[in-house]
Simulated scan of single mutants.
Amino acid sequence: PDAFAARENLGCFVGGEEDCVEAAREVLDLLVAHVTDAGGPGSAQLARAAYSLQAAAQLVAAVEADALYHAVRTSSDMGEIAGMRAGAITPAGDALLAAVTDGRFDGTYTVEMLMGELTAALTTADDADLILPQAEAVQRLLELLAIIGGSDKAPSALSLVYREEDACAKEGLDWTRAEQTYGDHGHDHDHDEDADWGDDFGDAGIMDDDGMTGAYPGFN
Rank of each mutant, 00 (worst) to 15 (best):
A178L: 06
A33L: 07
D210V: 05
L10G: 00
K153M: 09
L31I: 11
L158T: 03
A88F: 10
A167F: 05
M78R: 05
T176V: 12
G107R: 02
T124P: 00
L28D: 05
A98W: 01
Q134V: 14
R177M: 12
D2I: 03
E64N: 08
D102I: 07
D19A: 15
A55H: 02
G93I: 01
V72Q: 02
D192M: 07
G16Q: 01
D66E: 14
L130S: 10
G172C: 08
A169I: 05
L53H: 01
E80W: 06
F105C: 05
E165V: 15
Y162A: 09
K170D: 14
L130H: 06
C168E: 11
A65W: 03
E80S: 11
L144M: 13
I81E: 09
A154L: 02
D129S: 10
R163H: 13
V32G: 06
D188I: 10
V63G: 01
A204Y: 06
G116F: 07
M84F: 14
L68N: 01
G205A: 03
A86Q: 12
A33F: 12
G93K: 01
S75V: 01
S159P: 05
T101G: 08
D210G: 09
P133I: 09
T123S: 11
A121H: 01
E117S: 09
L118H: 00
G186N: 04
T119A: 12
G183I: 10
S43I: 08
L97V: 11
E193C: 03
V21E: 02
E22W: 02
Y109H: 11
V100F: 01
V111A: 03
A95N: 11
A62V: 09
D203T: 09
D29W: 07
E18S: 15
G116C: 06
D184K: 10
L31S: 12
G93H: 02
N9D: 14
G116V: 06
D2Q: 13
D199K: 13
A125L: 10
E26S: 14
V60F: 04
I81T: 06
L28N: 03
V60M: 07
S156C: 07
A62N: 00
A135Y: 07
T213W: 02
G87N: 06
G150T: 05
G103D: 10
G42A: 04
L31M: 15
L53Q: 00
A86V: 10
G149M: 08
E164I: 06
A137R: 11
D203A: 15
Y216K: 13
Y162H: 14
S43W: 07
R7F: 04
R140S: 05
P217G: 02
M84Y: 14
A195Y: 06
A33M: 08
V111D: 00
G83Y: 11
A125I: 06
Y216I: 13
V60S: 01
Y182R: 06
A61E: 13
R140P: 00
V60Y: 04
D188C: 04
I131T: 15
G42C: 08
T74D: 11
L30V: 09
S75A: 15
I206N: 03
D192V: 10
A82N: 11
A98S: 14
A65T: 14
A44V: 05
A56Y: 00
M207R: 15
V72I: 14
W197M: 13
V21L: 08
A215L: 04
D203R: 13
D127E: 14
V35E: 08
L31W: 12
C168P: 04
T36I: 14
E143M: 09
V72A: 04
R48H: 03
A98L: 12
H189Y: 13
L118Y: 01
E136I: 02
